[in-house]
Structure formats: structure tokens, C-alpha cells
Nucleic acid binder design. Structure first.
Lengths: 338, 338
DNA sequence: TGGCGCTGTCGAAGCGCTTCGATAGTGTGT
DNA sequence: ACACACTATCGAAGCGCTTCGACAGCGCCA
């Protein structure tokens, strides 16, 4: 591999001139710059990464950490890791994947060894040890997801509350007033990430604001049938359904409606909101407010790059505004039989 | 962050002594080493990664490249990326995730800048430009998957041929002799990765060896029904079925059997072989010879670490022996009605 | 007791880059 | 013609580590 000295010799200038010609940090005469660029081209020069890191105190690397609970579905987080990687690349960073069993070890190591300039934290739990670590570490970090305590850390996430309101509004606009929500399993709502709570609470508040009676049900781990039962007990003439749940449970809910002879969107208008899967994979393609990995990750990387490069003041919590995608599963209610 | 000089001062020795005490590359008196270790502990010292890389000409980083076709299911490859990361960590390496649209750009860059010591190549196609690149690059690389031309490159993959034979043997041992194979869609078989071919050819050869008439069918993109039809046209009294296909098609095949009133394993014994999904997710948990990401990735990383660290001669193609997992979907045939 | 080989430690060089300060060269206003 | 500001370039220092060669101190054998 050629070094900067080789390029300098080839171009008939000094190494520092090559460096400045390539970085643009000092003015270089146009023809000199061109000779340097030609030499670079001819030799196929790329600066050695470690030398550059050492001298510039900048690695151009972002670490991304995904904890490794055996129970969670890995591939879901991996999609986020992928999106972070794409976004980071667009900002000129490479991405280091950290998946240690000890969630903190990788963060600590990549910070202490200056291997990465910043860290993107995925799959954030309500009580996440990595939040404390981030506060202590004095190393740029951005969380995708929001833990309970957000002081001293930087977070990005979909605005689940707004998503809930928008889902309700869409149903109400279609004349639906008996609206239920199928949320996540109770255990998940209580223990893990807190977005199900944010969604549920906004759903309840907003329906109440609109003079409706909120009905929320929690599915079992994989099936929605009992949840649907619960909903129908409270709202026998259910005509709107919000799904903030997994793909499996969503499909199960649709199956449950079909089994009861209830049509979508005729009898029940349905919208999936704050969900990570494309509804086109369901038996009926639903209107959806997606949890868009690319959007969250793009924003997170942008913020992180700003902190690293310009020492920008870190914004606290950044909420991504929801986007409503129409697929025909919400239409005006048929006139009710009198 | 403390430097090696800080540790040296704290321990009352020179920097080189600290280095040797930590690396073990020269003998250090026991009590001196202990003083160094204590100082390291007290200061929380971790060596700066870039300085270490620059001096040692070793990054302790492996790159993993997954090409970014929009059509392919990303999360599947991401599981491999995850397994590579885990295995690499166990060998003391971190993992750089490369997902450039231009599949080669990241490889070229990480090699030329010496950012990574080696590259693990995922999702290898039959004709993969990255194979040519690897030959040209003179940088350690291991492919997970096998392109058509394997000269000059290092590959690891499941032994699909052996898997096919083992699947057939299991069915034959259960007294099944009218055995069909549902492979991948024809287009995939011809254009993309070549393992479907390796599997199919071994299936055909081995059934023929055993005096059976091989029947192979190719599903449509998502459904197996026509393939099943094709199979039954050739083998009306099908009693053994091998699935080397996607989860979706496998489920569709089971549905097809059920729709025809054929029971598993009573009428038809079924085994899924060389498949990346757990058969427990199907409506019937099938005997399976899994395509085990952890096994392939572990082996690949081990080989790569050997090349990087000890300049080991690179083995050409390493085939992972298949493992048969029994789940009761292959049982002896009922006595045939005379 | 002198020479020899070990063992344990140190100093210095060097990895390839960035960046600071110095300086030669150029043009401008007086 | 001279001082002055500016531009373009260079040399050298330094980032924090690894590693090589040197060598002091030691025990051992002759």
C-alpha cells in the first residue's frame, strides 16, 4: 500500500501538502492540487485508517450496540443496525457492530480505546443500564428508543403518542366511534421498552378527549383472540380497531375478526400504528403508521455526527413525526341499521 | 484517557515494560508485572486502538460485507452478520459492518485503509464480483457460501450434498421409496447462490444410486402447490418429501399435503434440509438438517483468524458436516394396503 | 576470578498521518 | 523602492503504541 510519502514524491510536493490538498484545510494552488490528485489516482492511494485516527483523534467509526437477550427477535434489531450503517456511511462513517452479552462491555471498550467516535444504542429498555453508562462515559451516544430517565442522554424515537392520536383521528374521521386498541402483551408493556405505554396512554387520553370511551386490550404472547374478546365485551359494536402490536398478533386479530364474521373495513376499520412490519404481509393490507427504522436511524446518525464533528449541543429527546399510509382499511362507516 | 506513559509512571517502569507486561511477548519479573497490572487497574487503562493498530499493523477488526439487493430479505443475512460478530469477539476481534450498495467498495476500502484485518463475505452469489475482488485484493477474506469459481478464494458452507444424501437416507431408512424434493424457484436455482443446485444434484444422484427414481419440483416464488402437483404427477403414491426451500414454501407444501388429505408423517414422511428457519415455526415441526449460521460463521471466523494471525495456509473450500435433528416427521411407513 | 549466557528492563525508532509555525514568493499601496 | 498582507508550501513535532537492540546484573562453570 502506498503511503502519503509515496504520493508526495510522485507529485513532487511534501507530505503535508498532500494532506492539505486532500483535506482542503488550507488553500493549495489549483495546479498543485491537481498533481496531487493525479498521483493519488495513479498510485491508488487511500490513507491508512489507523494513522489517520491516531493523528486526527477521529476514527470515522460509529459503534452500534444491540443487547443480546436470547428471547428477543434478533433480526428485528438487525434491521435497525443495517439502517444505522447506511446512514452512517452517508456521513462518512463506518459502523462497528457490538453485540456483547454484557451490553455495557462493548460500549465501554469502544469508548475507552477511542475505537469509535460515537455510539448508537438500539433496543432501549425502560430501565437500561446503558443509559447510566452513557451518562458516566462522557462519549457521544444516541439512543434509539426512550428509557424512563432521559436526563443527560440523547434519544430519538417515533412520536408514539402522536401516532396514537393520528390513528384515532383517522378512524373518527371515517365516522367510527367505538374504537379499541390491541396493545402489546401486559408483561412487555410493563417490563421492557416503554413505547407501548406511551402509545396506550395517548390513545386513552385522546379518545377520552374526543368523548369516546377508550377500550384497551392486551394480547397473549402470540394470539389476539382473548384480547379481541375483551374488547368486544366492552364495545360490542366495535367499529374501529387500532393495532399497536406484533405482526403475529396483528394477523391473529384479523383472523379473529374474520372468524366472527366481521369484515374489514366494512364492519371494522383497522389501522396498525407504531409497528415495525409492513402490513402488506398481513392477510389484509392495513392502513399503517410505520415505525420507520430508516427515519429514526437517519436522525440518530445525523445528531451523532453533529455532536462528534461540531460539538453541537445535544438535543434531549427528538420525536419523529408519524406518517400515515393509506391502504384502504379505513373507510367511512356504512349507515348503521336502525 | 490514561496513556501507556501514565501507567508506566504509576508503576515506576518504562512504557516498553508496560507493553511487554501486557502482551506477554517478553518475560517480565512477576512482581513487576503485578505492579503494572495494579497501575492499569487503578487508572482504568485501555490501550488506544488506533495507536495500537498503527504500531502493531493489526486492527483486531474483521469486516463483514452483505450486499444490499433490495429484493433479498435483509434480516436473514443480518443473522449471519450477528453470528460472525459473536464469533469474532470470541477471537478478540470487533466487527465492521459493510453494507454498501456497491458491494465491492467497502471491501476495497477496508482493505486499502487497513481498517480491517480480514473480511467475511456473506450472501455469496454463484457469480459474485466479490470473488474476483478477493483474488485481486491480497487481503484475507473468507466467503460464507460458494461461488462457481472457487480458485484462489476461501469458502465455508454447509455440505449441502451430504445434507441431501442424509435426508434421503433418513426417509429410505423409514421404508420410504417414493421420494420427492421441493427445491427453490427455478429462477433462484439458476441465477443466484448455487447451493440449491448442489443440493438438487446430490439428491438426484443419491436417489438414483439407491435405485429410486428422483423427482424434483420447483415452487413458484411463494407457493408450493404447483410443485406438489408436479411431484404427484410423477410419483402418485409419494411417501417421502424433502424440502430444501424457504419457510413460506415449506409451509405451503404442508398445507398442500393437508388439503389433499395426506397426513404427515403417516402418509408422507417429511424432512426439511439445508434450510435457515427453525421448523418449529411450521404447522408441523419437521425433522430438519439446519443451515446453521452459528456453525458456518464460527468456522469462517476461525479460519480467518488463523490466516491473519499465523499466516496459515488458507484451506480452499470447507464444508460443514450436516446435523440431523429428529422431530418425529419421519417414521416407518405403515404397511401398504395390498 | 574471569568469561559466558540468561533474564529483565530500558531507550529509541518508527508506524503513517495531521497540524502548527515558519518562510519564500507574490502582489498592493504608498 | 519599501513595508505589508496574503498565499502556497515545507519541515518538524507529535498522536500512543510496539518492537528492536542494548545492556546491567546475575548465577554458573571452568
Amino acid at each position: 500500500m502506498p503511503t502519503i510519502e509515496d504520493v508526495a514524491r510522485e507529485a513532487g510536493v511534501s507530505a503535508s501538502t498532500v494532506s492539505y490538498a486532500l483535506s482542503g484545510k488550507r488553500s493549495i494552488r489549483q495546479d498543485t492540487r491537481q498533481r496531487v490528485l493525479d498521483a493519488v489516482e495513479r498510485l491508488g492511494y487511500l490513507p491508512n485508517a489507523s494513522a489517520r485516527m491516531l493523528a486526527a483523534k477521529r476514527a470515522q467509526i460509529m459503534a452500534v450496540t444491540a443487547p443480546l437477550h436470547p428471547d428477543t427477535d434478533q433480526s428485528a434489531h438487525m434491521v435497525f443496525a443495517l439502517e444505522v450503517t447506511k446512514a452512517a456511511r452517508a456521513h462518512g462513517y463506518d459502523t462497528l457492530l457490538l453485540v456483547d452479552d454484557d451490553a455495557s462491555e462493548g460500549m465501554r471498550r469502544s469508548a475507552a480505546t477511542a475505537l469509535a467516535d460515537g455510539i448508537v444504542v438500539l433496543d432501549v429498555a425502560a430501565h437500561d443500564e446503558r443509559a447510566d453508562l452513557a451518562r458516566a462515559l462522557n462519549h457521544p451516544a444516541v439512543f434509539i428508543g426512550i428509557p424512563d430517565r432521559t436526563d443527560g442522554i440523547v434519544c430519538v424515537d417515533l412520536d408514539f403518542a402522536a401516532a396514537a392520536r393520528e390513528a384515532v383521528d383517522a378512524l373518527v374521521a371515517a365516522g367510527r366511534r367505538r374504537i379499541g386498541l390491541i396493545s402489546h402483551p401486559r408483561t412487555a408493556v410493563l417490563r421492557e421498552s416503554n413505547f407501548p405505554l406511551r402509545f396506550r396512554d395517548a390513545f386513552a387520553a385522546h379518545t377520552r378527549e374526543l368523548g369516546l370511551s377508550p377500550a384497551v386490550a392486551y394480547p397473549d404472547l402470540h394470539a389476539a383472540d382473548r384480547a379481541l374478546e375483551d374488547l368486544l365485551a366492552v364495545l360490542p359494536d366495535l367499529d374501529g380497531l387500532v393495532l399497536n402490536t406484533t405482526e403475529e398478533v396483528a394477523q391473529s386479530a384479523l383472523d379473529g375478526l374474520a372468524a366472527r364474521g366481521m369484515t374489514v373495513p366494512g364492519d371494522v376499520a383497522v389501522v396498525a400504528a407504531g409497528v415495525a412490519f409492513p402490513t402488506s404481509r398481513l392477510s389484509i393490507t392495513l392502513d399503517t403508521i410505520p415505525l420507520d427504522a430508516a427515519a429514526s436511524c437517519g436522525k440518530a446518525v445525523e445528531i451523532l455526527a453533529g455532536i462528534v464533528e461540531d460539538g453541537l449541543e445535544a438535543p434531549g429527546v427528538t420525536l419523529i413525526p408519524p406518517t400515515y399510509l393509506s391502504h384502504g382499511s379505513v373507510v367511512p362507516a356504512a349507515p348503521r341499521p336502525a
